[in-house]
Design a protein around this nucleic acid. Structure first.
Lengths: 138, 138
DNA sequence: GTGATATCATACATATCTGAACTAGATGGC
DNA sequence: GCCATCTAGTTCAGATATGTATGATATCAC
């Protein structure tokens, strides 16, 4: 959408995709994406493991997406699937050591990128931005 | 990412995906997506047709994406591919009557949705939002 | 207990996007 | 004219997302 009029909607979508691209580029240095990092974040926050359905809820996406995301994380060696003894329908995604390490790395990269990107705004501007974005979603 | 802290970055990404989802939902009533609408927009603005490479430039995406997007638009009957007599490597995406009609429809839906979504902001707020998003992309 | 129903995860089809490899065709230097 | 190189588009593999359908298991009502 380069060279487009940047109407209200496209201004937001475009800014979002630019920021996302910048952070993704840095995360790719350690083999992570925002999607993977978000999953690792929720697993970490939940204390190492979560049933896939819970993970889907926390990622605010459908379960079929989590199935595939965890497939990729498992292929990367960052999580394992284990069965839930209490409910045999359920499968837990469990962080591996590599997953914990990747989360630490990725988390710092993300925070650093965020500091740099948002460093161009004053605290008041950041607050205002949050306020305006919040209104748009009511 | 529901229930997440909504840090600076995620606030923007989340707001963006919410807005995108709302508009996509309405566009889907006429069988369009934002990606398809954007393509139709550039074809219309260029006077009905464009070489695929040019379309890729204007959509700010890679050519392989346009190949597939035009595949889908062609399957929908909204554009046709024709050869360029001046350069036989090149293929033009040409709007069909159905494509023109879909663009008119989709365009109005998008504008209407945009009016509603951004109607919650005053003109000054919208300006401020654009200003802040602009700064983030420097 | 058993049968209807709900829930968990997966499989599959589809949409969108990227980047790398490839093909066909254009072009410039010699 | 002919070869090296550039360009246009496609193809393919992969990441991310949705929604539908399915199979296995739980659970509830009876």
């Amino acid at each position: 959408m380069a060279g487009t009029e940047r109407t209200g909607l496209f201004a937001v979508l475009h800014a979002s995709s630019v920021l996302e691209g910048r952070v993704e580029a840095r995360l790719s240095d350690v083999g992570l994406s925002l999607a993977k990092l978000a999953a690792l974040h929720h697993l970490t926050a939940a204390g190492e493991s979560l049933p896939l359905g819970q993970l889907a809820d926390r990622l605010a996406c459908v379960k079929s997406n989590v199935t595939q995301l965890v497939d990729r994380l498992e292929a990367d060696g960052l999580v394992n699937r284990t069965g839930d003894p209490n409910d045999r329908r359920s499968r837990l995604a469990v962080l591996t050591d590599a997953g914990r390490f990747a989360y630490t790395q990725g988390s710092q990269i993300k925070m650093q990128a965020e500091r740099e990107l948002f460093g161009v705004l004053t605290a008041e501007e950041t607050d205002k931005l949050h306020e305006l974005l919040g209104k748009l979603q009511r």
